[in-house]
């Protein structure tokens, strides 16, 4: 069976020049050898701290930046090889909602034009049919068709995010990339928007790739989670299994650093040493070893760990602990 979205060894390296005359060139490995699969109608969360490469990965899926190496397929089609009408089809199938609803809507376009843009570019619809589609999309996100005449600045943050969502769903895409879709919103608005995403998914059957740093959002939205650290995946699996029994020390630290409203246990939180190292000069061996609370010795600092299956099914982890090394 062909998987819906398949990503294989995707990498993105950025050259950075330093020094007064920009003569020294370094490579930043923003994303390094990332592979995963996603089934249709499911939600995958990319989780990690700033600089871990989750947004770069999402932008590659959106074809906003080209991968340095690796490939990915949507419904069995190699996305890198798409041209002409197939590329156009990809543009309608894959949509995005960005973090900041103040930056993601052009201030000089009316809401109707913002929502209709995708249809104008990719479909040949009559004016009447287009208006109908736009009105439907506005209604699906809880706005009124009248709102189409207004400009974005007449709306609050939550409503603006609804406009962005309407413009993402108007072409009935199969995959929507959500880049921190609620983190710029107020607490009381976040749950409205998260619920809206769930409603849209059950109505249209689309899949989501959510970029998130908030673990509560992740647990609520995602079926599967990919944890990233310094450009690499370190743990991947079903959300429930990973939140209930995280195996990678970084995931454990991340979960314990989240400050829940109700503490479920009195375990003291894991406080990590230091900060995320520079991706220009990543650590040897396991990328996480300089900060790892479960560091087990030379193997961590000299050998990069391979993927291994965790105790439960549908859950993989990249750590020496639990292998013959550990």
């Amino acid at each position: 069976m062909i998987s819906f979205l398949k990503v294989e060894n995707l990498s993105k390296h950025f050259p950075v020049r330093t020094g007064i005359f920009h003569r020294k060139e370094h490579i930043v490995r923003a994303v390094q050898d990332v592979s995963f699969e996603l089934e249709e109608g499911q939600t995958l969360a990319l989780v990690g701290e700033s600089g871990c490469g989750k947004t770069t990965l999402a932008w590659m899926l959106l074809k906003l930046i080209e991968p340095t190496s690796g490939r990915f397929w949507l419904n069995g089609q190699d996305v890198a090889e798409l041209t002409g009408p197939d590329l156009r089809q990809y543009r309608t199938n894959v949509q995005a909602v960005f973090q900041d609803p103040w930056a993601s809507l052009s201030p000089r376009m009316r809401v109707f034009d913002i929502v209709a843009e995708g249809l104008r570019l990719n479909d040949n619809l009559s004016d009447g049919a287009m208006t109908k589609r736009v009105d439907e999309a506005l209604c699906s996100v809880g706005l009124r068709p009248d709102d189409g005449h207004k400009f974005p600045h007449e709306f609050s943050g939550g409503q603006r995010q609804r406009i962005a969502i309407a413009s993402a769903i108007v072409q009935r895409p199969k995959l929507i990339i959500l880049d921190e879709p609620v983190s710029a919103l107020d607490v009381s608005i976040r749950s409205q928007i998260m619920n809206l995403f769930k409603d849209i998914q059950s109505e249209f059957g689309c899949s989501y790739v959510v970029v998130a740093h908030d673990l509560g959002t992740t647990r609520y939205m995602a079926d599967r989670v990919a944890v990233m650290y310094l450009g690499s995946l370190v743990e991947f699996g079903s959300t429930d299994k990973m939140f209930d029994a995280p195996e990678h020390p970084y995931t454990q630290a991340l979960l314990s650093a989240a400050l829940p409203i109700q503490k479920s246990d009195d375990k003291p939180p894991i406080v990590l040493r230091g900060e995320v190292p520079s991706p220009v000069n990543p650590p040897s061996g396991c990328l996480f070893h300089p900060r790892c609370q479960s560091f087990i010795g030379d193997v961590c600092s000299s050998n990069a760990p391979n993927w291994r299956k965790s105790g439960s099914a549908d859950h993989w982890v990249r750590c020496h602990i639990g292998t013959e090394w550990g």
Binding site: S188, S191, K198, G216, T218, R219, F243
Partner: peptide, 13 residues
């Protein structure tokens, strides 16, 4: 309305 990380919630308030 704040999602928990400890339990799976099906519908947020």
């Amino acid at each position: 309305s704040v999602p928990s990380i400890d339990t799976k919630v099906y519908r947020l308030y």
